[in-house]
Simulated assay, not measured.
Amino acid sequence: MKNSTMRLYWHFASVICLTLFMILGYIVKFYESTVLRIDQPIMDWIVTIRSSYMTSFFTWITKFGNTLSVVFIVLAIVVLLWKSQRKVECYWLVLNTAIISGVGNYLIKFLYSRERPGIEHLVSASHYSFPSGHAMISILLWGTVFLMLLPYAKGSWKIKALQIFCVIFALLIGMSRNYLGVHYPSDILGGYLLGASWLCFSYPHFVKYRLLQVFNQ
């Protein structure tokens, strides 16, 4: 009963995130001028606060959402998990980052075909703008790590500190895309919502198979 209730809560959260994403996506697709009333002033303001220090910082941060960086980070985590016989964790992490975020985000962008902001881009960025791939991969990568650490967080300040780092890092990657001029705020929000929806949906299934793994060891 407890597991069923937990699964219900997580799936409800998934539906909420997906619904919000679909509403936002509908507005972006058919009423872009409406969402630009919020997006554009923020982007214009960002241009006014740019500095050499902030540009260097966010240019460095955004690299952790690039494909090559994500591949190296995921491989490093997978190696550590595999050595610890955490195969279910490995499969879940690869599914979330490689398939759902990597392939899924690339294809979904075609559905909305939103052009990138018209302000100066401080880094190169190809493909369409909505939803942000960097935002989606950051929530799926660091959100997955965050949830993997949940069973070990109680009574451990080190694990809690690592979880806080995951949250802050995911947020910074999203912010970097706004600062660098390659995404609107709504693109970032869309990436977070879509990634969070899948994360909330898949987490109860991950817990189920992880328990089976522990039981069979």
Results as ranks from 00 to 15, higher is better:
residue 147 L to T: 02
residue 16 I to E: 02
residue 155 G to S: 08
residue 167 V to C: 12
residue 155 G to W: 05
residue 148 M to H: 04
residue 51 S to Q: 07
residue 188 I to R: 01
residue 139 I to L: 07
residue 85 Q to A: 13
residue 131 P to I: 10
residue 141 L to M: 14
residue 211 L to S: 14
residue 190 G to N: 05
residue 66 N to Q: 14
residue 29 K to L: 13
residue 24 L to Y: 02
residue 141 L to R: 05
residue 34 T to F: 11
residue 108 I to V: 15
residue 130 F to L: 09
residue 135 A to I: 05
residue 11 H to A: 03
residue 83 K to D: 08
residue 25 G to N: 07
residue 182 V to N: 10
residue 72 F to H: 04
residue 201 F to T: 03
residue 136 M to R: 01
residue 148 M to D: 00
residue 8 L to Y: 14
residue 80 L to Q: 11
residue 164 I to C: 12
residue 111 L to W: 12
residue 55 T to Y: 09
residue 42 I to P: 08
residue 140 L to M: 15
residue 118 G to K: 04
residue 204 P to F: 11
residue 23 I to Q: 03
residue 91 Y to E: 03
residue 152 Y to W: 09
residue 148 M to P: 00
residue 4 S to G: 02
residue 216 N to C: 13
residue 30 F to W: 15
residue 128 Y to C: 06
residue 178 N to C: 14
residue 109 K to V: 05
residue 160 K to C: 12
residue 106 Y to C: 01
residue 122 L to D: 00
residue 217 Q to K: 15
residue 162 L to R: 04
residue 36 L to H: 12
residue 134 H to T: 08
residue 210 R to F: 12
residue 2 K to S: 04
residue 111 L to S: 12
residue 80 L to T: 13
residue 211 L to A: 15
residue 73 I to K: 01
residue 65 G to A: 12
residue 115 E to A: 11
residue 46 I to N: 05
residue 14 S to T: 06
residue 27 I to G: 03
residue 184 Y to S: 11
residue 161 A to E: 13
residue 4 S to M: 03
residue 137 I to T: 11
residue 167 V to D: 08
residue 92 W to G: 00
residue 49 I to K: 03
residue 129 S to R: 01
residue 170 A to C: 14
residue 149 L to P: 02
residue 105 N to P: 05
residue 207 V to N: 06
residue 157 W to L: 06
residue 97 T to D: 04
residue 14 S to H: 05
residue 79 V to Y: 14
residue 17 C to H: 00
residue 82 W to D: 06
residue 143 G to R: 00
residue 61 I to F: 07
residue 121 H to V: 04
residue 151 P to E: 08
residue 104 G to Q: 06
residue 102 G to T: 09
residue 111 L to K: 04
residue 127 H to R: 10
residue 6 M to R: 15
residue 183 H to T: 14
residue 41 P to C: 11
residue 148 M to Q: 02
residue 154 K to L: 03
residue 27 I to T: 15
residue 215 F to A: 15
residue 12 F to P: 01
residue 87 K to S: 09
residue 21 F to G: 00
residue 11 H to Y: 05
residue 47 V to G: 09
residue 79 V to K: 06
residue 20 L to I: 01
residue 101 S to E: 01
residue 157 W to K: 12
residue 185 P to Y: 04
residue 147 L to A: 05
residue 132 S to W: 07
residue 12 F to W: 10
residue 96 N to Q: 09
residue 174 G to L: 10
residue 100 I to D: 00
residue 145 V to D: 02
residue 53 Y to G: 06
residue 6 M to T: 10
residue 64 F to P: 02
residue 158 K to L: 10
